[in-house]
């Protein structure tokens, strides 16, 4: 564990708290893509299946259980509690285009051809692109509530912070996880456009609006 990874994990935790807080205070899930949130549940379930047979640390265990349960809770909020505030006509990205190719890629590019290993690899690839429905939705509406942008900034910062973590681990432990690194760089890259608008607009007190 190094500082970059810890900060990354804390940013990930923060993103979830921001999202849940937004939904509770506004009593709404407006502007949030149900599809992206559902993909995160799939990501966590396929990646953390090792909870059943591997013990890494208490930290690792608690975080995994938290990510699985909080992502399930968010789906519950969107599907039941605040269902009327979700507009499926804006959330139209086809998730098949993400899930299918990620699964095929996981079958081809993996460390071992084993069920759990392929599921882990699939989860890494899927996480990298799971934000697409959310970004697509914002592209369609051309705007986002400020609190939603804070959620996205924290979520993007999480994977961005894993990059210095991997560099640090390469020099201190000599370990490289090419699948995680390549997917993590792609994942972070997808946020660059968003980060630019976030820093130049939202952090200056302006509304998040995309050019028409």
């Amino acid at each position: 564990m190094n500082i970059f990874r810890l900060l990354g994990d804390l940013a990930h935790l923060a993103s979830i708290f921001i999202l849940v807080h937004k939904m509770h205070t506004t009593r709404s899930c407006r502007g949030i893509s149900f599809k992206t949130q559902a993909l995160y549940v799939l990501v966590f379930l396929t990646r953390y299946i090792d909870l059943l047979y591997t013990w890494i640390s208490l930290y690792n265990f608690v975080m995994k259980v938290f990510f699985i349960s909080s992502s399930g809770y968010i789906l519950y909020l969107m599907k039941y509690r605040f269902r009327p505030t979700h507009d499926p006509s804006l959330d139209t990205f086809k998730v098949e285009y993400l899930v299918g190719p990620c699964f095929v890629l996981a079958l081809i590019f993996n460390y071992r051809f084993e069920v759990t290993e392929i599921l882990w690899t699939f989860s890494i690839y899927l996480e990298a692109v799971a934000i697409f429905p959310q970004l697509f939705m914002m592209q369609r509406t051309g705007e986002a509530e400020t609190i939603t942008t804070h959620y996205l900034a924290a979520l993007g910062a999480y994977r961005a912070l894993y990059i210095p973590n991997w560099i640090y681990r390469y020099f201190t432990e000599g370990t490289v996880d090419p699948i995680a690194v390549v997917a993590g760089i792609v994942q972070t890259g997808l946020y660059l456009d968003f980060f630019y608008v976030y820093v130049t607009k939202v952090l200056q007190g302006q509304k998040f609006e995309l050019p028409a």
């Binding site: 990930h12 591997t54 975080m63 071992r112 290993e117 882990w120 894993y162 996880d177 090419p178 995680a180």
Partner: peptide, 10 residues
């Protein structure tokens, strides 16, 4: 060797 990869990250 990534053989029996232990995935210790989240």
């Amino acid at each position: 060797d990534q053989g029996n990869a232990v995935h210790d990250e989240l």
